[in-house]
Simulated scan of single mutants.
Amino acid sequence: MNALFWVMGRVDGRLVLNIEEVADTIGLEVQTVYNQLGAGAFPIPMRKQGKRWFADARDVAEYLDAQRELARQAHDALRKRMGIAA
């Protein structure tokens, strides 16, 4: 998890992020996160405590690392189709 230290640095070393911090960290609007949670489509495990939603920093970092890997694979595939050496 390369992104874990970066994520934790954004929230002063805390291991738990609230929904606003999660949305900001992954680049979504808070309402989009609420909409995806309601539809059961949000890709990061979240738990509800009272009226608030929270996520573990490790899960957020894992999501970011996975997105980076997908982007890297798409980039490499594009370069290969274009005949550009790696």
Rank of each mutant, 00 (worst) to 15 (best):
T32S: 14
Y34I: 00
L28Q: 13
Q31G: 01
L15G: 11
R14I: 04
V30N: 07
Q31T: 02
M46D: 01
G50I: 09
A57D: 08
A55T: 03
G9T: 05
V30C: 03
I26S: 07
K48T: 07
V60A: 00
L15F: 10
A61T: 08
D24L: 15
V16M: 12
A23S: 06
L28I: 02
R52H: 12
I26F: 10
Q49W: 11
Y63T: 00
N18S: 10
V22D: 02
T32W: 07
Q31Y: 01
R14L: 07
V11S: 13
Y34V: 00
E29H: 02
T32E: 12
E20R: 12
V60E: 00
W53E: 04
L70W: 10
G9Y: 08
Q49M: 12
A57E: 11
G9P: 01
R47V: 12
G27P: 09
I44A: 03
R14W: 03
F54I: 07
D24T: 11
L64T: 02
D65M: 14
V30S: 02
L15I: 10
A57W: 09
D65K: 10
E29G: 03
L28D: 04
E69F: 08
V30G: 01
A39F: 05
M46K: 00
F54C: 02
E62Q: 08
V11T: 14
V30W: 06
D65Q: 11
Y34A: 00
L28E: 10
R68A: 14
G27T: 11
L64D: 05
Q36Y: 13
P43N: 06
L28H: 12
F42N: 09
G13E: 06
Y63F: 07
